[in-house]
Design a protein around this nucleic acid. Sequence first.
DNA 1: GGAAGTC
DNA 2: GACTTCCAACGCTTC
DNA 3: GAAGCG
Length: 263
Amino acid sequence: MLVPHLKDRPFTMRRYPDGAYGKAFFQKDAPKGMPEWIPTARIQVTSRDKPRTKRWINAPLVNDELALLWMANMGCIDMNAWYSRVDKLDRPDFVLFDLDPSPDVGFEETVQVALYVKEALDALGLASFAKTSSAEGMHVLVPIERRHTYDDTRRFSEVVAGAIARSYPKLATTQWSKAKRRGVLIDANQNGEGKTIASAYSVRPRPGAPVSTPLRWDEVKSGLDPAQFTMDVVQQRVAQYGDLFEGVLTTRQRLNDALKALA
DNA sequence: GGAAGTC
DNA sequence: GACTTCCAACGCTTC
DNA sequence: GAAGCG
């Protein structure tokens, strides 16, 4: 279920060599010694040194279960990949609404904001898909045609997030600075080239090992508990429902009309 | 966890 | 030989 | 414009 959501996307390894609670580090350039049967994409990324330079890296592509197993064996727990695929790196497959509760609110409020996001997207005629992200957060994905740029998707999510924050100021915010933030952050800034998201069905390195779990929208309601989605529970869900995120990979929607309606 | 750089 | 460091980087605010 | 930060 997991592999299709990683297929052909530059994969950023997040390794926990000392286990889920030890020090972790990111590694986007394929380590030497990675077997040749794991394909790579030669891509250019910006480095963080003072004069921002571009450098070429070999990004691993987790395209089958054996590659996924190899990553797990390298200490990867959450599986992080780009929003776009290697054949069109600058065209993301979806817009992400990353919902992150501040310390003053919890999952209950996050669920409510997720419903507001869906409501707004429904009004724009856009189908969306929800999953738990970590212990407290939610991800709402809007699959799109590969015609829009990351700049398009970021501006779109900014507009939608801003509208929701203004409509529900007690509950939702776009305030970046943590000190001034109250309520659930709708983080539009997570839409950008080179940014990654923990995929559907990723296990999180947290107590209880919760899984980022695709949900039916009718499950997104008061009382939903993200901690209930343990690995065995999610395996049962997959057996019962199949991949609730299949639509993310198959739905193609145009943002233009929605953007126009907002302009 | 492992390579590479520093003493 | 032992110890340390490196394995990412966006776009906002701030100075 | 560089640096700090979530």
